[in-house]
């Protein structure tokens, strides 16, 4: 169902001409900001960070998908179906991490070419499995935000927008997580994107395979954590909705 929805969201033309250019210009904006500072390596740092963060931006659209079920009146029908709601929703928007992965890869490849980045094209291709990992982990986080949006439909644009910006601010996209005060630094270790992005950086900078694998492993841990939290939250929201009859009205 999720992937059947994808062609109704984008045509190949609207995705390339409209969406990827929009996301590319977002990454470009931050890359130019990095160039303005004149600091050595900052441009490349922000190029990688913001290109990978594109996937997080796109997975946030699962909130809109979730809320659409509410507006179409199909949310209560999903709730009464004999399946776990969290699992249903984790599957419901799977086309978003898929298209986010394609967008992120396209932006990373294009900007690497435009700014003559020091890494090779095959390193960007090798980064694909890591981008898949980031897509999965940020999608689990996005599903939790979708659950919150379902509970408070009024905030359906506020939650995903701030959720995505929190990742951009604190997960090492533009500055290292160690820049922030200790509590924020530690919080960032539990957020998706942080370790996956670090793994991509290690790979592109020719770091040791062990450090790439370690960061990838930590990203898998984060994905599991956010998937678990999402399942729990959906269970609570559905239980609360059943109890107070607010499933179609919250």
């Amino acid at each position: 169902m999720s992937f059947a929805e994808l062609p109704t969201t984008y045509t190949l033309r609207s995705w390339t001409v409209g969406w990827v250019i929009r996301l590319g210009s977002q990454a470009l904006f931050f890359v130019l900001l990095g160039r303005l500072t004149g600091a050595t390596g900052r441009l490349e740092y922000m190029l990688v960070g913001n290109s990978v963060a594109v996937v997080a931006m796109e997975t946030m659209f699962v909130s809109a998908t979730a809320v659409t079920e509410r507006f179409q009146g199909t949310f209560p029908l999903l709730v009464v179906s004999p399946a776990n709601m969290g699992l249903v929703y984790l599957g419901r928007g799977l086309h978003w991490p898929a298209s986010g992965l394609a967008s992120s890869f396209a932006v990373l490849s294009a900007l690497s070419l435009v700014f003559s980045s020091p890494w090779h094209w095959w390193q960007v291709v090798l980064a694909l499995p890591l981008l898949v990992l980031v897509a999965v982990s940020t999608y689990c986080y996005a599903c939790l935000i979708a659950a919150l949006s379902l509970r408070n439909v009024k905030f359906r644009t506020l939650y995903p927008e701030t959720g995505a910006l929190l990742l951009t601010a604190f997960c090492g996209v533009n500055v290292s997580t160690s820049f922030w005060p200790e509590p924020l630094h530690w919080l960032a270790q539990l957020l998706p994107l942080t370790h996956g992005l670090e793994a991509v950086r290690h790979l592109l900078n020719g770091g040791a395979a062990s450090s790439v694998l370690l960061q990838a492993g930590l990203e898998i841990g984060c994905a599991a954590l956010w998937a678990g939290l999402t399942l729990l939250l959906f269970e609570r929201i559905v239980a609360a909705g059943r109890r107070d009859g607010s499933l179609g009205f919250s």
Partner: peptide, 12 residues
């Protein structure tokens, strides 16, 4: 926060 963190981190 994002803009200022970049400028602070790069000493600008």
């Amino acid at each position: 926060l994002i803009f200022l963190s970049v400028f602070r981190d790069t000493g600008r």
